[in-house]
Write a protein that binds this DNA or RNA. Structure first.
Lengths: 121, 121
DNA sequence: ATAATATATGAACACGTGGGCATGTGTTCA
DNA sequence: TGAACACATGCCCACGTGTTCATATATTAT
């Protein structure tokens, strides 16, 4: 089964398993799905945001509370909450000057638990 | 219940819910656990790596195969495989010149599925 | 209205990271 | 032994991102 690939600079060899590659290629999701997945995980990929999400799973809290809990500036927390909002991971409710944040769905906890399972071998 | 916090520049107010914060603080995981979680998600937070992981869940593949499948350079794939190896997400098996990669455990797929659930509302 | 306070946001900066390029390592084949 | 090839890796740079600082917005109290 000879290769008839044209002038591709990468890995032109008979070792490449064209059948496998083609089979996998057929089953591939849209490019966009992978980007969306990566973007979601990107949001989880910061310890500050992880802490915020974990904390909000324990209790609804305002920005002040979270800043105090994590010993970080209000601004930093606010910026991160924005990211979490845009990713639809948290929702908020306003009560006077105070804005209370909470998780917007169950998936967060489920994903966390799977990840913890992995970390703990 | 007045605040007795010293000279902290952040959010010194009576609105802060000290009881809630303290309760959540008690239940907090180690700092390190959060970092490990974030680091794991960081690995998932790149579309190239996501594609590689997804592909390896479909079939064991060599570096060449993956590069061809994703239409990327061998170097780029190799760099990313290194990241995945260091995160213990993939394992490899050498056969002559060719190195075959595959997923190292089930968690990856489970985490993916939860994430897809979230994306699809 | 003015002051005080909770939160949001824009600009700027420091830092981390993905991938290209060049090269090194290990293996097969002539 | 030497050429060809699969893969790994170090260096580099362009780009993205988290936090700080300063400031804006919204709400309450005086």
């Amino acid at each position: 089964m000879k290769k008839k690939l044209g002038t591709i600079e990468r890995c032109i060899s008979d070792v490449i398993h064209e059948d496998v590659v083609n089979k996998v290629k057929e089953k591939m999701h849209d490019e966009q799905t992978f980007y969306e997945l990566a973007d979601l995980f990107k949001v989880f990929g910061d310890s500050t945001r992880i802490k915020i999400l974990w904390a909000l799973d324990e209790a609804e809290m305002c920005v002040c509370d979270i800043a105090a809990l994590l010993n970080m500036s209000q601004s930093a927390i606010s910026h991160q909450l924005r990211v979490l909002r845009q990713a639809n991971l948290v929702k908020n409710r306003k009560e006077g000057k105070v804005v209370y944040y909470s998780l917007s769905d169950e998936h967060v906890k489920l994903i966390f638990n799977q990840a913890l399972d992995h970390i703990n071998e």
